[in-house]
Design a protein around this nucleic acid. Structure first.
Length: 473
RNA sequence: GCUCCCUUCGUCUAGCGGUUAGGACGCUGGCCUCUCACGCCGGUAACAGGGGUUCGAAUCCCCUAGGGAGCGCCA
């Protein structure tokens, strides 16, 4: 039977990084084994499920490039099927009706807690004849002795004593089916061979195996992956920063960087750090995923993102960068070709957002000088070189406004003044960029263009004048 | 409280009875250099603790400690 995996999120929020990782693992496993990857939306909680969440999940999957072969399927479309299975279990005596009151259940629970035993349903209604017309829930008759073994691809063999598991509700009073039932039915109906999910479901695997066996179905293989922790070692949550994958996109992360980061959380292949999606498919092995939870580390994600920004096709980065410039109210058509900007700046930014920020000077005059840079480089001694540069630049033909000739002009003036390159280039850089950091000065000048260069040199000279005229320096 | 799971540098990890405990991020020293960044070279830093088993234990067993998950008419 060919491999079939699924990602089954509940649409009660965005796609978070933990979910994205289990989706990635499921995707890789299916692709590696020539199988199918299925997306199933578990929307049986009518109260909390929203269409917005469904869209957010779909958007996240699409952005990451985790293409599914089937779906999205919605569990709310399968209610008839669930009811039929519940009725079947009822008919075969594998499930029973229960009309225990909330009060009785609460009392039972309190008594069990007081007696220091695990709270669980006591099977009170087993074997009782409860009329289908009176309010009731349906419970699965869990085996009362023996044990269930979850033969997990990550955790190994984990045994649960059946007396730890109780008779779980599979149909609510309102007639709706519950999670463990719907999962079991869909996994069986969709011929899912391998269930890869968060390890908070390990206990559910035991329950689901029991239902599956009672129903006469072969349980799938399981792999329960450890959760992702925040940088402080506690469960990853909103207070740790972005948890929604779309938030990563909006902050300027590349999907391949996030994916690469996520696959290395709990898994490794020798000393390799960089994996393309194809390499992941080829090398990923669910059996070698670590059992222990991993902490999310933004520094490493940043490093990977910078790596990918630097090595990706500049044309693609340019397209992805455009909206980030838009965020800064910059229209990229008003300045140099974005591809040239990307080529010059790619190694200098950890995110597209940062790339946009450090490239804004190519498109518009900055509002103020970096204080330290101006203090160090825009001093009266810079007047002479700046004036000479301005004069030389003004004489240049537009066709000559190229890195090579610009470089010659700067070195010539440095020579004439008997100054080191840095004494000329740095004041110029601060004058036209506003900061002491930018690509090579010749490239920087080319990107900024002749008009803006002359204008900003004038501005810088004025600035020096206003700062220092009153001071006898 | 009960059940289950986890524990190697700050972080992600390699290791699967004999290693100077390796790599990566971060931090840091240097080189390159017109700045920043990239790149390159070097450094810092770990087997949670205690018992066993063994000639020998990060590796196997037990206990303790710490952490996590589950115990819903949520998924």
């Amino acid at each position: 039977m060919s491999v079939r995996t699924r990602f089954a999120p509940s649409p009660t929020g965005y796609l978070h990084v933990g979910g994205a990782r289990t989706a990635l693992f499921s995707y890789l496993f299916a692709r590696k084994h020539g199988g199918q990857f299925i997306l199933r939306i578990e929307d049986t909680d009518l109260e909390r499920s929203t269409a917005e969440s469904v869209n957010a999940i779909l958007e996240g999957m699409a952005w990451l490039g985790l293409e599914y072969d089937e779906g999205p399927f919605f569990q709310t479309h399968h209610f008839d099927r669930y009811q039929a299975v519940i009725d079947e279990l009822l008919d075969k005596g594998l499930a029973y009706r229960c009309n225990c009151s909330k009060e009785r259940l609460d009392r039972l629970r309190d008594r069990q807690m007081a007696a220091k035993v695990k709270p669980r349903y006591d099977g009170h209604c087993r074997g009782q004849k409860i009329d289908a017309d009176e309010p009731h829930v349906v419970r699965f008759s869990n085996p009362i002795d023996g044990y269930v073994v979850v033969d997990d691809m990550i955790r190994g063999r984990v045994a649960f004593n059946n007396n730890e598991l109780d008779d779980l509700i599979i149909r609510r009073t309102d007639g709706s089916p519950t999670y463990n039932l719907t999962v079991v039915v869909d996994d069986a109906d969709m011929c899912i061979t391998d269930v890869i999910r968060g390890d908070d479901h390990l206990g559910n695997a035991a329950r689901q195996i029991n239902i599956l066996k009672a129903w006469g179905k072969e349980p799938p293989r399981y792999a329960h992956v450890p959760m992702i922790l925040g940088n402080d070692g506690t469960r990853l949550s909103k207070r740790h920063g972005a948890v929604s994958v779309i938030a990563y996109r909006d902050q300027g992360y590349l999907p391949e960087a996030l994916l690469n980061y996520l696959v290395r959380l709990g898994w490794s292949h020798g000393d390799a750090e960089i994996f393309s999606l194809d390499e992941m498919i080829q090398l990923f092995d669910i059996n070698t995923v670590n059992k222990s939870p991993a902490a999310f580390n933004y520094d490493k994600l940043d490093w990977l993102n910078q790596h990918y920004i630097q090595h990706a096709d500049p044309l693609r980065i340019a397209r992805l960068l455009s909206p980030h410039l838009g965020q800064l109210e910059i229209d990229p058509t008003t300045g140099p070709d974005l591809v040239d900007v990307v080529t010059a700046q790619a190694a200098r930014a950890k995110t597209l957002k940062e790339l946009a920020s450090i490239s804004a000077f190519c498109y518009r005059d900055f509002d103020y000088y970096d204080a330290d840079a101006a203090k160090q480089h825009l001093r009266p001694v810079a007047r002479e070189p700046l004036i000479r540069l301005r004069t030389a630049f003004e004489l240049m033909a537009l066709d000559d406004w190229q890195p090579e000739s610009l470089h010659h002009v700067i070195t010539r003036i440095a020579d004439e003044l008997g100054l080191k390159m840095g004494k000329v280039a740095q004041p110029l850089r601060v004058a036209i960029v506003g900061r002491a950091a930018s690509p090579g000065i010749d490239i920087t000048l080319q990107l900024v263009g002749k008009d803006a260069t002359l204008r900003r040199i004038d501005n810088a000279l004025n600035w020096i004048a206003t700062q220092h005229d009153n001071v006898n320096e």
